[in-house]
């Protein structure tokens, strides 16, 4: 008889401390920051006046990706000053997502609420700060009384706008990233467990043959997670760009 015991979520998400206060998720986050720093350190050390190659080419590709695919559609040319922030955000989130599909590590750091929450709060602080800097208290005024809306609708639209801008935006930003990565992680765990249960623990040739199916699915999901990891980093970054852009120029 087969018995599939799905481990409790904490077992697949929480890790023992490597040393006090430092666990696997923290390790991944630090490694992500370190890898990003190293890539850009090497890139910045290479001679920029020649045609870029190797790591420098890769780094410049990233910069151009952020400028052309994220800033230009979301903020326009005036948002170019935000390139370093958005670039860092994108690289950090992507490198935190990536371990979720790397064998042996198999843990996206963003599948824990801590990092998405921190980043969402940071983004919230940044775009509220930009709004206050560019529009003063009119930033909140625009929220209560959005331009282009009939005055009779203010009591209806105002609260929704305030809620949407100040609560739902950071919340959905954090939850989107976190839940996507957690769901992907749980899917991978599920198919790994099924594969293990059927192929390794299966006491019957039929089970062992059937075990190929979850294994194929595991590979498929891994490929899918590559896409999701990239897409979530991209979406988090472009939404940040959209929020900052709308704070700086409310008419857009």
């Amino acid at each position: 008889m087969l018995a599939l015991e799905f481990p409790p979520l904490n077992e697949i998400l929480r890790w023992r401390d490597l040393f006090p206060t430092f666990n696997k998720v923290a390790l991944i986050a630090v490694a992500a920051a370190l890898i990003g720093t190293i890539i850009f350190l090497i890139a910045a050390r290479q001679d920029g006046s020649k045609a870029p190659k190797g790591i420098r080419n890769f780094a410049e590709m990233l910069v151009e990706f952020v400028e052309n695919q994220i800033i230009m559609p979301a903020m326009g040319k005036s948002g170019m000053g935000w390139t370093p922030f958005l670039l860092t955000l994108f690289i950090f989130i992507y490198l935190c997502n990536l371990p979720g599909i790397i064998p042996v590590i198999y843990m996206p750091a963003t599948a824990r609420m801590a990092i998405p929450l921190f980043l969402a709060v940071l983004v919230w602080l940044v775009y509220v700060g930009v709004g206050l800097k560019h529009q003063g208290l009119g930033y909140f005024g625009h929220m209560i009384a959005p331009p282009g809306v009939p005055a009779a609708l203010y009591p209806l639209i105002g609260p929704i706008e305030i809620l949407s801008n100040l609560v739902i935006r950071p919340f959905s930003l954090a939850v989107r990233l976190f839940a996507n990565m957690l769901a992907g992680h749980i899917l991978l765990v599920t198919f790994s467990l099924l594969t293990e249960e059927l192929i390794i623990d299966g006491d019957n040739i039929i089970f062992r043959v059937l075990g190929v199916l979850p294994f194929a699915m595991l590979i498929l999901m891994t490929v899918f997670e590559v896409l999701v990891g990239f897409l979530q980093a991209y979406i988090f970054t472009i939404l940040t760009a959209v929020y900052i852009g709308s704070s700086a120029h409310p008419e857009h």
Binding site: V25, A29, A33, L34, F92, A109, A114, I115, F118, L122
Partner: peptide
């Protein structure tokens, strides 16, 4: 995790 992740970022 919040501290390490945030600090690293």
């Amino acid at each position: 995790e919040l501290l390490w992740g945030g600090g690293a970022f």
